[in-house]
Every structure is written in C-alpha cells, then in structure tokens.
Design a protein around this nucleic acid. Structure first.
Lengths: 336, 336
DNA sequence: TTGTAAGCGTTATCAT
DNA sequence: ATGATAACGCTTACAA
C-alpha cells in the first residue's frame, strides 16, 4: 500500500506538500500538484482513512443501531425501509455506515455507548429500541450525537424523527366512525413502544368526540407479532361479540387478526372491518387488501440521516422531524 | 475521552503496562493489573479501535457490499435476509460491518476496491452484483479477501457461497413433468445473473431427460422485476397458447406472471401452473400460494460471513460453500 | 515484571 | 510555496 510518504519520496517533495496537494489546498504550486497527483495515481495510492480519523478525531462514520434486525422480523419490512432511507441519504455524503445490532451476543457485555465509543462513530441512529431498554437514557444523555427513530425524546445531543401517531390513529377513528361503526375495538401493541401509547390516545380521543367510548374491555394487547394479533382479536370478540370494527396498532397484528377471524368464519369486511397501521408490503397482498395508515418509513430513515449529519457537519441543533402519514383505504373495511 | 496514557499516569505505571494489562497479557503482575483495570473503569475508559487499527493494520471490520439495497427492491426480502445472516454470524465475532451500497452516487467515482481500501476493511462480502459489472474482476483478482454471494468464481483471495441453482431448476422440471405437463415454458431473468444461466440449464436438461424439449420460443426473458414477469408470461402464452405450466426464475416474476395471467382470465393452477424460485416472503401470501424453490437465504449470508472470517482469522483457503434448497409445493401448481 | 522508544499514516503548526 | 516536526492513541520489539 502506497502512502503519502512514498509519493513524497518519488515526487521529490515533503509529505506535507503531498498532503496539501491531495487535499486541494490552495497554497501549492500547480506544477507540483500535478506531479504529485500523477505519482499518486502511478502508485495506485488511496488515502488511509484510519490514519486520518485518528488525527482528525472524526471517523466519518455513523452507527446504525437496529434492534429487530433479526430473522423473524424480516416480515415486517419496516426496519429495512428505514435502513434504506438512512443509507440513501448517507451515501450522498462523506459518511459511511457501521451496522450495530442489539440482538447480538455482544449486547450483554457492552452498552450501545461503549460500542459507539470504541468504533468512534461520529453519531448514531437508533431504530427499534424499546422504551424500557436499560440503555436508552444512557444514549439520550450521552455525548454522542444521536437521532432516535420513533422515540420522541430530545436531549442535549439527541433529536428524533417520527410520524404523528396520535393524528394517524385519530384519522382511523374518524374513518371508522364515518363508516357508521359504533361498536369498535382496538388491538394495541405492547406498552414499551411509544407508538402504542400515542395510537391508543389518538384513537380514543377521536372516538369520544364522536360519542363513541372505547372502554378498557374493548382494548386488547398484542406484542406487534402476527400471532399475537390473532389472539388479541379473538379475545376482543369473545368479550364484545357485537364488535363490527377493529383497529390494530400494526399491520402485522392486523394480518394475524384477519387470518384468525377468517378461520372462525367471520367475513372481512362484511362481518367485521379491520384497519392496520404501517402499510407494510404485505398489507396490499393479503386478501382482502388491508386498510391502513401508511407511514413514510423510507422518509423516516432518510430524515434521520439528514438530521444527524446536519448536527455533525453544521452543528445543527438536535430537533425533531415529523414525516407524513396517510390513510390507505383498501378492502378490509366497509360500511357497517 | 480517557486514553491509556491517562490510566498510566493515574495508576503510576507506563502505558506499555497498561496496554498489556488491558489486553490480558500474562506477563503482568496481578496486583498491577487489578489496579489498572480499576482505574480504567474509574476513568470510564474505552479503547480507541482506530488507533489500534492503525498500528495493527487490521480494522476488524468487514465490508458488506450490496447492490439492490434500494427502495424499489424492498419487496424482495432476499437482500435483507442475506444481510441478516451476515450480521448474525459477524456479531459472534470481533468484526463489525460497514455497509457499502453500489447504487450510491459515490459508485461512479470510486471502484469497490477503492472504497474498501480507503475504509481499510479486512474483507468484503459482495451481494447482488451483476456479472457484467465492470469492477467484478477487479474485486476477484484483487488483494482484499472477499466472498461473493451467488457468483461462482474463485480467486486467489475470493471464495463464494451459493445454492445449487442447476439442481433446483432440475427439480422443478422433474416436478412439472411428474404432474403430467408436457407443454412447458420458462420466464428467465436477465443474462447478467449467473443464476439465470444455471436455472435455465438445469430446467432444460431435466425436461430433455423426460423427452420434453424447451425450445427457444418457449423461453421468455424478464429482468427479475414483478412487472417484467407479467409481460414475459403473456408473451409466452401468445407464442405458445397450449402452454400449461410456466417456471419463473424468480418469485417476484412469478407473482407478476400470476397477476397478469389472472387478469386475462386464466385460472391458476387449473388452466396453468406457475412455479417460482426464491421462496420470498410474499410467495406464501399471494393467492394462490406460490410453489417455489426455497433457498436458505439467511444461510447464504451466514455462511458467507463464516467463510470470510475464516479466511481472515485462520488464513482459510478461499473456497465455495453451497447451501441447501428445497421445493416448496403450494397451490399455484397442479396436475395437468 | 516493567519501562523506553519507535512506528502506524495522516493532518496541523510553525518556520523558512 | 514548501518543509520539519509534533501529535493522534495505540502496540510491540527491545532493554532493564
């Protein structure tokens, strides 16, 4: 591997000059620069970013900390879409992405902060972490610039991107009430996701405003998995046989609910309407197509990267970015 | 950020001793070690991997070079599953993963090799690259240890993992012939994927052995996208209206074919049987469920990482690893 | 068992 | 416009 030292020797100049020439400084003679660039090419030189990072104290890498990047979760293309967005923005910049996953065996030994400190990432994007994660606060309070996906917390060096989950759920309420439903239930996700809380609140509030009460026995909790959605939906119907519409806090749970209900002989949407949340890929392939709230998942990742890199490069303040959502009406919901 | 220098000062020893103590060398007094470890903890020390990499000339990172990691491709969870496999194996080791994507704007300026050399990755896993990629040879002939996914080429520092595409396609041929089909067509992918060539050969050979000839006008090429599959399938039926079974070289194309055929009034599998390849997530959600060849995509990634890291850590020879495949019979195929 | 010193490949400061 | 030289934080002969 050729180094600037080799170039310096061959070109008959000092390493300082080589460094300056290659980095486009103005105070170097055009002829010397030309010669240096030439010999650099000749020696097939490529800069050693590690050495550069060491002296500059900047690695030009951002950590992408994902939980849920596990085999079982591939169904839910949420994670991958976020990652794609992050990647697309980052690849327009000088930053490379280092992947950290929390389901790894390393996790137990090392906190996220340690991971990031050791690899010297300049900043980190965190996706899929649970609100009860013991290290969440450590990250938010920490020194490393970070952007959280779907966790509305701002710290001295921490911003976030999210969608307006309250508003999204509100729209579902409006929509179902508009279709004439009055006996409505909800399958929520586990309590350790901020989105669960928000979606519940938004849904409840919009129904109340239509004089529909979502009592506790009309709310059943799953854990965002397909299977749990089925279980929760059946429970719901057992407790409230009159239910004509169910809002599920995730598409995966909604799909589970549809499967379970269909297997019990319910027709969707004739007997019961189902609405999901996320607009995952599957939702438009299942039968019937699932009505859901579409989130700009890709945008979530893209904006996260944008926000983080703005914080890094222009000392931008940590702040929040809200990306849009939209009701996608398909065939799993109908007038009562 | 505390460094070993700080620890050395505080503990009253030399930095050499600190280095040795922290790295578990035997030639250091137990008491000194204890004190050093203690002060390290006290100072909230974490090692600077960048400095370490510089001197060791090993970054303990592997590059994951993916093309197809783009928004449009999220449907096909192939890429993400490979990535998950890579990640799962890597996270059991000391290696971290750096993500490179070829669809980035960076690509035009820099070759893969440059990317890898600059970031000083110890090795690289390459997924989704086309056989006509101008830089493919550069990688295979290059100095950087690498493992290719689904490109059967071995070099001095390059191994690969793949499935037996010939055998998989062969089994599809046997299967369809076994169902009594004699008028059979194939929708292949573009010629710039090794898998296309292999699948075509395997399919053709197995049919010939059953005295069924797959003439050129019974082969229609798509480009692995859903839409192209639909187009190719319609073309095929126009040219050969008697066709009763179509083998598509990817599930996505098969799904496109099913949609297109259904919209023309064909019933699947009553009028025409469809078989795909890949067993992507969608294939068991579409109607009817798609018969396909399941590849252990996760295993592809896992084995790729394993092979690469073996090459890096134990100077393992570059070699090939073949992961298993299996025919998944669902409802898109039936007796003629 | 411990310390001194060189060196990894850069950038940056200060002369010249 | 160019060059010496120190520094980044670490590992590793070599010496003591």
């Amino acid at each position: 591997m050729a180094t600037i030292k080799d170039i310096a020797k061959k070109a008959g100049v000092s390493i300082t000059t080589v460094s300056r020439a290659l980095n486009g400084y103005s105070d170097v003679n055009e002829d010397t620069r030309k010669k240096i660039v030439e010999t650099a090419k000749l020696l097939n030189y490529s800069p050693n970013t590690i050495a550069r990072s060491l002296v500059m104290k900047k690695s030009k890498t951002i950590g992408l900390l994902v939980s849920g990047f596990i085999r079982e979760n591939a169904k839910d293309n949420f994670t991958i879409e976020v990652m794609t967005g992050v990647n697309d923005y980052a690849s327009q910049t000088a930053y490379d992405i280092v992947l950290f996953t929390t389901n790894s065996s390393k996790q137990r030994e090392k906190t996220y902060t340690q991971l990031c400190k050791e690899r010297k990432v300049d900043g980190v994007i965190i996706q899929g972490i649970r609100t009860d994660d013991p290290y969440l606060d450590e990250v938010i309070e920490g020194e490393i610039p970070c952007v959280l996906v779907d966790i509305p917390k701002i710290g001295k060096h921490a911003g976030y991107v999210s969608t307006d989950n309250y508003a999204g759920a509100w729209e579902v309420g409006e929509y179902l009430a508009g279709l004439g439903h009055t006996s409505i239930g909800m399958v929520n996700g586990h309590e350790f996701a901020f989105v669960s809380q928000e979606r519940l609140k938004g849904f409840k509030d919009s129904l109340i405003q239509k004089d529909i009460k979502l009592s506790d026995d009309r709310i059943s909790n799953g854990d965002f998995t397909e299977e749990s959605g089925g279980r929760a939906a059946l429970q719901l119907l057992e407790d409230n046989p009159s239910t004509t519409a169910i809002f599920c806090a995730s598409d995966l749970m909604a799909i589970g609910a549809m499967t379970a209900l269909k297997s019990r002989g319910y027709r969707i949407p004739e007997d019961i309407s189902i609405v999901g949340y996320d607009n995952i890929l599957l939702s438009r392939y299942v039968q019937p197509g699932l009505t859901t709230i579409s989130q700009d998942t890709y945008g979530l990742g893209y904006e996260a990267a944008k926000l983080l890199i703005d914080m890094l490069d222009h000392e931008g303040e940590p702040r929040k970015t809200i990306v849009l959502h939209e009701l996608m009406e398909r065939d799993s919901s109908a007038k009562v």
